[in-house]
Structures are given as structure tokens and as C-alpha cells.
Design a protein around this nucleic acid. Sequence first.
DNA 1: CGTACTATTGACGCAGATCAAGTTCCGTGG
DNA 2: CCACGGAACTTGATCTGCGTCAATAGTACG
Lengths: 250, 250
Amino acid sequence: MEAATAIRRKLGAAVPLSSEDLSVLDALLAQRLTVAGGTPLMSERQTERSAYAVLSGWAYRYRVFEDGRRQIARLFLPGDFIGLNAALLGLPEQPITAMTEMQLAKIDGAQLLESLQKRRALWLAFLWSDTRDRLISEERVASIGRRSAYERLAHILVELYHRLELTGNASDDRFTLPLTQDHLADLLGLTSIHINRVLRRLKRDNLISVEGRTIALVSPERLHCVADYDSRYLIHRSVTVPSGNEASSL
Amino acid sequence: MEAATAIRRKLGAAVPLSSEDLSVLDALLAQRLTVAGGTPLMSERQTERSAYAVLSGWAYRYRVFEDGRRQIARLFLPGDFIGLNAALLGLPEQPITAMTEMQLAKIDGAQLLESLQKRRALWLAFLWSDTRDRLISEERVASIGRRSAYERLAHILVELYHRLELTGNASDDRFTLPLTQDHLADLLGLTSIHINRVLRRLKRDNLISVEGRTIALVSPERLHCVADYDSRYLIHRSVTVPSGNEASSL
DNA sequence: CGTACTATTGACGCAGATCAAGTTCCGTGG
DNA sequence: CCACGGAACTTGATCTGCGTCAATAGTACG
């Protein structure tokens, strides 16, 4: 149970969770599974009404066009939820692929619905997570729409570091990046060839260093500056849970 | 009360709402106000814990960079909600500006929280609306990242038509577009000069026609094709509300 | 030791940006 | 009713960031 530290850290950072909230959460996340990198998740089996919480590993959702062009719409990191809203609403989810081996907790839609209705703090925590995902998506629009390739790359690296740090998957300005240059290209609306050149320019300018799959942010300050990284972006002051008793309220 | 047809149509299309649901909804939307075009909404007065429902008119949220580059992250059309999650969570919302004169319903955060907890169908309807907004945002990422200017413009026009049609603000393949070419540029990650040229190419190719602020989709089929418009995008089969009685569930 | 990703590097082309004028369309006031 | 001023829209000339095409290395696993 307590293995779901990524989820607990993320939700707990936004909303103070009581021990009772935590035990309901643990119950939701009880069913574990592991999938290999490359496994398609949620591909068309919308019948299931189930979602996943990411305990470890990375996944991504993408859109493919007729002619093969591809755009990654979203990355799922440890602490993120996959297909939550779709499960709650009973709607189909777009195709999602595991990028690395992943540990997942399978969440039952109906059980989740009940739990959120009973525990207001949990509901707010999930709502916050959802809101944060939207923020990220909208900042990606800003990135692809208005930032240069150099700035885009700087921005995503800083963003990923902050997201991973929150769940304990990064520290000391270093983290493991399982994305290939092709993935980065499809994520940022560029070509892998250009990613390669710009990545190397970031190294030459001494903003980052790369050893294998490990990225080190050599100069976080200059990276933030280059990316015009909004300091308020993804910063979570704790949400206050309005009183009003749990579950009752009729 | 019943003036909030845009909201009722939109939510009702996704989730069947009982007359009781509707009366709770009406109560939420009771407080009306009108703002002039250009009015800033939600700028930093995060203290209020209130949100808006758009009854008529358009607004947009944007991101400005140090050097003046601008990106519109999101458009708000009739039937959309502004700052809902932020109000529920008590978090600050990013700057939003009214583009035209707007009729709004002011929603109290605390009251909303209570209402959603009492009425499961309403909660799901709001959740659905939120999910749809995220879909739109992710499709925008795909658009800016991988579509050409010509395709992007085709896509946004088709998307806006479908969004407006749902609330009764467009029909017969025509609608009023209050956006200037500058707005379109900032929305699609282009320059207004290029928007101008591409718009004219769409007219020359007989895909659209423009009279003043009215856009007519001359050939919706070809537009869908050019844009590689996903037919499932924004289509809402009705959500089924799981049984499980309202409000109780302990 | 091949087969298949993944990364790297160079030459060249183009979609869309930038720069620089206009021009039309209004609303406002004289 | 016309003059003025300021958005919004047009149009052309030129430039450039990034894409495309093509080829070469690593690397990694079976």
C-alpha cells in the first residue's frame, strides 16, 4: 500500500489529507500491476470504466495524423493519473502508450466515484491534480506557439525536473529522461534532427549536461531565464478544504 | 433564470439533468452581470472564490512573455465556465479578458461545492465540461505542433462552429467570429500577416466565405478533410449517471 | 556480428517571420 | 457632413528557423 508514495506526495502537497483520507486512497490504489515499456494502455477498451495511477515509469498520449505526423499531447509521470475523468464519465480515452516499464494502480471507476463523494479532501485533491494537468497543457500551447526550439527545450527540461522533484523522482538538479530525441520532437512540435542540434547547443552553452539517460541542469537559473519560466507555474500553495462536513450535506 | 440556455444546452447534452438538477443549477447561476468588451476578468483578485458562467459573448486567457510575444491559451464561448476549478480550490486564476460584451452568471465557490456534492448528475456534467476543455487544449497542442497554417485555420474554424452550434450560437454552417486577425494569430501561434494571407487562400479555394464578422463554411466536408478533423472530437455521447443515490452513499 | 534503434552531421529548401508601406473601415468631434 | 485618427486589414520584398533529404556512426540486444 504505502508503495504509492508518488501519489501520496503529489496529492498531499496540494491538500492536507487526514489518515482516514489516506486509507480510502490506499483502498482505491490496492490493485497493482506492472507493464513493460511499449505496452498500449487504454486503447479502445473503453468498456472497462477503469483508470490508472502511475506509481513509477513514464507514459504518453499522442495524436497521429493521416499522413503519419505525430504529436504527443501529454506525458504521464509518477504521481499522475491516466484516464481518470474518462473512467468517471464512462467515456472512451485516447490511445496511451507506456514509454518505460511502469508500476500502476488500477482504479475502479465506480469505487472512485463513491470515494470522492464521501471524502471532500480527496475530491479536491483529484480536482487539483486535474487543474494542474490543464495548466501544463496550456503552457505547452504557449511553448509550441511562441517559444523558439531552444527556449522550448529549456522549458520542458525545467518543467520535467519540477514535476519529478515533487514526487521524489528527481533532486540535485538531475533526473533520468527516458524520452528519445524522437519523443522530444513529437512532444515539442519539432523534428528529431533539430532537437539534436539544439540539445547540443544547450550543452555547449553549459546550461545542461547529459550522461546516458541522465540530464543535469548545470545552470537552473539561466535555464529558467531562457525559457521565461513563470515562477508561479506549478507552484502549489496548499488548498484549504472548506469546512462543511464530509459525506453528509443534504 | 431560463436565460442561461447556453449552459443548460451544453450540460444537458452530456448528462441528462432532472428538473431538480436544473433548479439547483438555476440557483447557482442566479447572479447575473454584464461586462463590456475589453474588460479584464479574474485579474489577480483571487481572494473572491467566485467563478463565471458565460451566457453570451467571448473571452480569452493568454500568456505574455517578457519581450511581448503573446499566446492565447484558451477561448471562452457561451456555455463555458471561467475559473471554476480555481474557485473551488481557492487558487488564483490567470488573467482573462472579455473580447466582446458579455453576459455572465457569477458563481459562488462555496455554494457550487455544496451543490456538486448534493447532485451527482450536476457534478458529472461539470466534470464532463472540464474534460472537454482539456481535450480542446490538447487538440490545440496537436494543431500548433503539427498542422500547417492552412490546416490550423481550417481546424479552428470547424472547431468553433461545432462548439457554437452546441449552444445554439451557430447554425447553417455560419457563425459570427469576433476575433481579429491578431487574435487568430496569437491563438494559433502565427503572425497576423500570415493569417491574412492564409485566410484569403481559404476563400480563394472556396472553403469559406467572409462577410464582415460572419464566417460561412462553404464546404464543411473539405474543411474537415483539410484539417484532418477527428470526427470523434467533441462529440458527446450522453454520459450515464451511475445509480447510487444522490448525496447519501455512506 | 547482424539487425534495428538511436544519435549525429552536412547541404539545401521552404513555410512562415520580419520589415515596410499602404488602404479600408469606423467612430468621434468639429 | 466632412475631417481626423486609430484600429484592422492588405500586399509586396526579403530573411531565417527549422524541415527535408541523405549519409554515417554508435549501441544494444539476440
